[in-house]
Each structure stands twice: as C-alpha cells, then as structure tokens.
C-alpha cells in the first residue's frame, strides 16, 4: 500500500486568501450584483469527476469507504462519483481531500500532481471558488486482473 499525503495550514485561510479569482480574470462569487453560494455537495461531485478523468486513477475511495459505499449506493444514499472525496467549502475558497486507488505501474507522484491540477482547474472553473489545497491519499494499487473471479480449485 502506498500513501502520499500533504497537509498545510492553509485551511485557516479559507475565505481570507489574497489570491482572488477576480485577479485571475474569473468571475467572483460576491459582487455588487449579489452573492452566489456553492454547497459542499457541488464541490464534492465536481472534484470526484475531475479526479476520475485523470489517467492512472483506477477508482476513488479507500477500501473501507468502497465497502461501505457499495452498501450505501445500493440503497441510494451515496453516489460512486463522490466516494473518496471530502471537501471544506467557505464563501470564496475550498479545500479538497481525495482518497485514490492508482493503477499499478503509474508514477504515484505524477498521478497525484495531475489529479491536483485537474481538480483545481475543474472546481475553480465551474464553481468560481478558489481551491486552496488538494490533499491526496493513495490508499491502494490496482493490479490488472484484481477484479477477475477466483478460479475454483475443484472441477
């Protein structure tokens, strides 16, 4: 099992960052025209979809989350696309935590960096929130054939 994780204290700066989207040419969430609020579940789904678009990401969610998710998805409580994603959303900024399973043979640091860039691009582009951090935990590696059913030992 491989694990790579970065943690900063930047969450304390949620909503107080000076790196505003307006400065980068993007529409702000609060203007003289009015306020726009984005819920956690919106950011969760966008981040989950964005991470899944990156080559080398086999699945989102740790083994426990996937086991629990298999049950909760069957009863309609959760969606596979938000599994392994947790977010903290302020009025102007968001922080994202992701748990991934990476395909064996891929460079984990490269996949993690690609995921980070893709999540920032999608979340900022769609929601207008400034993403202050994307923490990535690689919970497991996927080997081709892992999903194949075990052959019976007896005829």
């Amino acid at each position: 099992m491989a694990d790579t994780k970065t943690q900063d204290d930047t969450r304390d700066s949620l909503n107080s960052s000076s790196t505003s989207l307006a400065a980068r040419g993007q529409e702000p969430l609060e203007s003289e025209k009015g306020q726009t609020n984005i819920a956690d579940s919106v950011v969760t789904k966008v981040a989950g979809l964005a991470a899944g678009e990156v080559a080398g990401v086999h699945e989102l969610g740790g083994s426990a989350a996937r086991a629990m998710g298999a049950v909760t998805q069957k009863v309609g409580l959760t969606d596979a696309r938000s599994q392994g994603v947790s977010v903290e959303v302020g009025e102007k900024e968001a922080a994202v935590d992701l748990t991934l399973i990476v395909d064996y043979g891929e460079s984990i640091p490269q996949v993690a960096e690609d995921v980070r860039q893709q999540v920032i691009k999608r979340v900022e582009g769609i929601t207008g929130l400034s993403v202050v951090e994307v923490n990535i935990s690689v919970d497991d590696l996927y080997f081709a054939g892992d999903d194949a059913p075990e052959e019976s030992r007896v005829a």
Binding site: Q35, T36, N37, I38, A39, S41, K45, T127
Partner: peptide, 19 residues
C-alpha cells in the same frame, strides 16, 4: 438577489435534492 447552488445533478442521477 442571492443565488445558492445546493447540488449538482449528474447524468443518471434521479430525483432531488440539495443540501
């Protein structure tokens, strides 16, 4: 005029609703 987006409805997702 305040706008709040409560959820994102993905393909194949049925029903409602937001937070």
């Amino acid at each position: 005029i305040e706008v709040s987006v409560h959820d994102f409805k993905l393909p194949g997702e049925g029903g409602e609703e937001g937070s």
